[in-house]
């Protein structure tokens, strides 16, 4: 029997592909914008959203999207005002989001912090067909937005001042990337959990930039690495009977280590050629 004969594994694999494609695509812009830890900040805030879902009896994914998007907009506004640096703004949200989530879950009758576990660490095999439609819809929306606004986002993330002097709607684009990131975090939450979500946005990008010279190929290759990590991690976690989220992230990190070695080697032989 293979994993494709199990419904829950088929759903999980499709979800894994979606997450593997979207998280690094968004991550490429976020890393370029020097906000590599944005995903972590949003992930912590999303936890408050999940807990609010429990408290109010609504779907935690829905409340997580709303709260994460509000958190991302708050981060962007604090950052744009320039009074507090971006990383301090992120740190404040980390703490607030985590503490808020734990407190709200404590106040929810019949729930304990154990209810948060599947959101903290991921439970991709619990994805059902309804979840899958939601994940697929969100993933397609994220990729479509990146395709339409990609050129402008590249300029924005490269140099905000030049973006402004080119007449781009800088404030709108900043909020757009923040909201896209928060939707991605919630999509990826099912696969790897909120605590590891950012790894899928950052690690495949870091892996790919060891090997590439252009922005475009960095993004494309990071999506390939993302899918390899999510699908490979999910499959091996099934056969090895270990947690899927952690396996996915460890696999992505192993890929980074390998790429680091190959990148060194390629660069050395390149410089060797040019000096020869």
């Amino acid at each position: 029997m293979t994993i494709f004969h199990l419904d829950f594994m088929r759903y999980a694999l499709v979800a894994a592909v979606m997450v593997g494609l979207t998280a690094p695509a968004v991550g490429t812009f976020i890393v370029q914008r020097r906000l590599a830890l944005l995903g972590d900040g949003i992930g912590h805030v999303a936890l408050t959203g999940v807990a609010l879902g429990f408290l109010t009896g609504t779907a935690p994914v829905a409340t997580a999207v709303v709260v994460a998007a509000l958190g991302a907009v708050a981060i962007e506004m604090v950052r744009a005002r320039g009074k507090t640096s971006g990383d301090v703004a992120l740190a404040l949200l980390f703490y607030g989001g985590l503490a808020g989530g734990v407190m709200i879950i404590y106040l929810t009758p019949g729930e304990s912090t154990a209810s948060l576990n599947s959101y903290l660490f991921g439970a991709i095999t619990s994805v059902d067909s309804t979840d899958l439609w939601v994940i697929a819809g969100l993933a397609v929306a994220v990729l479509a937005l990146l395709a339409v606004f990609g050129r402008e986002l590249f300029v924005l993330c490269q140099d905000e001042e030049v973006a402004r002097a080119s007449g781009l709607p800088v404030r709108f684009l900043g909020l757009l990337i923040a909201v896209i990131a928060s939707v991605t975090v919630v999509v990826a939450m099912r696969a790897v959990g909120l605590l590891l979500v950012s790894a899928l946005m950052v690690v495949p990008v870091a892996t790919s930039q060891q090997l590439t010279r252009s922005f475009r190929t960095t993004m494309a290759l990071s999506m390939v690495f993302g899918v390899l990590a999510t699908v490979g991690g999910l499959t091996s976690s099934f056969y090895l009977d270990v947690p899927s989220g952690a396996t996915i992230v460890l696999l992505a990190l192993a890929g980074f280590a390998v790429a680091l070695g190959i990148g060194r080697f390629v660069r050395r032989s390149r410089t060797g050629e040019s000096t020869a």
Binding site: V31, Q32, R34, V155, E161, G167
Partner: peptide, 30 residues
Amino acid sequence: YVPQRLSVGGGVPATVREVVASGRIARQRR
């Protein structure tokens, strides 16, 4: 606008052509 120095972004590589091509942005339709 030519700023005082190039901002390289957060380490994601970009080629010379990609950066130069971004100068067309104000002339391109979304």
